[in-house]
Design a protein around this nucleic acid. Sequence first.
RNA 1: GGGCCUCUAGCUCAGUUGGUUAGAGCAACGGACUUUUAAUCCGUGGGUCGUGGGUUCGAUUCCCACGGGGCCUACCA
Length: 495
Amino acid sequence: MTDNLENESEDLPEQIAIRMAKREKLNDLSDAYPVSLPLTHTISEVRAEFPDLEIDAVTGKKVAIAGRVVFARNTGKLCFATLQAGDGERIQAMVSLDKVGEENLELYKELVDLGDHLFVDGEVITSKRGELSILVESWKMAAKTIRPLPNLHNELSEEFRVRHRYIDLIVRDRAREVVKIRSQVMQSLRNTFANDLYLEVETPMLQSMHGGASARPFKTHMNAFDMELFLRIAPELYLKRAVVGGIERVFEINRNFRNEGADSTHSPEFAMLEAYQAYGDYSTMAELTQKLIQNAAQDVFGTQVVALDGGEENDLSGEWDRVSMFESLSSAAGQEITPETPMAELKKIADKVDIEIDHPLHGKYVEELWEHFVKPGLKKPTFVMDFPVDTSPLTRDHRDKKGVVEKWDLYIRGYEQATGYSELVDPVIQRERFVAQAALAKTGDPEAMKLDEEFLKALEFGMPPSGGMGMGIDRLLMSLTGLGIRETILFPLVK
RNA sequence: GGGCCUCUAGCUCAGUUGGUUAGAGCAACGGACUUUUAAUCCGUGGGUCGUGGGUUCGAUUCCCACGGGGCCUACCA
């Protein structure tokens, strides 16, 4: 592909060279890119005003509209063009010899291509086949296109869509629809929070110390302070500072960055929602999460049983199941597994089902086994409650059960959708767990956290008992649409 | 990271068991056509077959390396 249009014209692909020449001629005659156009209507407005005209009708109504030419059918003295607005609405323009005259008709045929933005004004009529049309009295180039549009009769390849999303948006209804759905979902989430009196904040994305999750960060460098900075892997430690400061219901929707694998469910930058509520706990947050998702489905689709892209349905209605991690694992594995079950016993089970686990933590074994035995069977939205203590260093011990913390993961259609906690607010225990993590970091675990002294100091000023939750926005869109993550992100990272 | 597959015209794809001039549809160009709906009809042009190297009389085809993409697999949300 030629990326530089300043090359000699003979180096350009044929179609681009021809369009460049047309652009020149338009500029000579008037302007290929006029600064403004005297529009009177949008295409949707015209359609809304004349929904049911008879065949071959005239209205006497003059309108001036613009749209991108997506189909063109030229006969000798009458030309048809299908004009498309940004929202996908289309209308037909008819350019006829007796309305515009010979010169303008010839210029139209010579200079207007598929893909161009065209301005027309004229009377609203219907054609002899009943198609709602503008009978053009004058036309004007609104913006000349230099590159040809892909053909509209084949699906674009996945790669082409992702690399040239702007073209995808022009030619594919579903692409436009997903952008709209995503925007409406965001609006709905914010409405649900607002109704619960939450405040939205924005916390640092450039951090001198990355924390709040276990993941490898992206590193960068700040020249002015000559310091190493990290792109955040989570906003948690700052949102908790906000709670300490008295912002008792707080949430943030923003990007996290994780320097790890990319596949159909993981993007290196992804939109994250986190929320904290003083005097709530993990149960409160489970209710909130269910409400956020059900409201989003209801607000955007008008139903909590959403239709997915592949033809399946995703039933998000009703009260969602809550199962205990250890209990569901025990019954699936056919033997009692508790936080006291010896490592040797866990290893024996892992060996028996042929999964390899190389990790020093007891809880890691439990989670791996759970993912093997229980996770594949989860279809309905399900909160998996009460995780092992040693894999959740920022979480509070369970109020009744020994060896587990008050944490849940929400699974929808078999993958992790959200997570929630009763937050650990005891500064002494938090420090102990951080120190243990830092020790792990020294042994080479690149995901372990460093000591965030300022965060610990904040806890020492007293954080009220709180619930917290986090949810991947891109994954929420996946649950609501059935699309892959690269289709829910408008411009996903490509190499 | 490991394994397998893939890259051909602006777009979507055929094809070449190594052999003259690499095809189709849409798009483009020239012509005909005043009611088309992916308009139709006649004609024409457009390609360093991802990049570099090798084998060969001859490579788009076979081999190697590199780059892009996909799927499976391992890890993270």
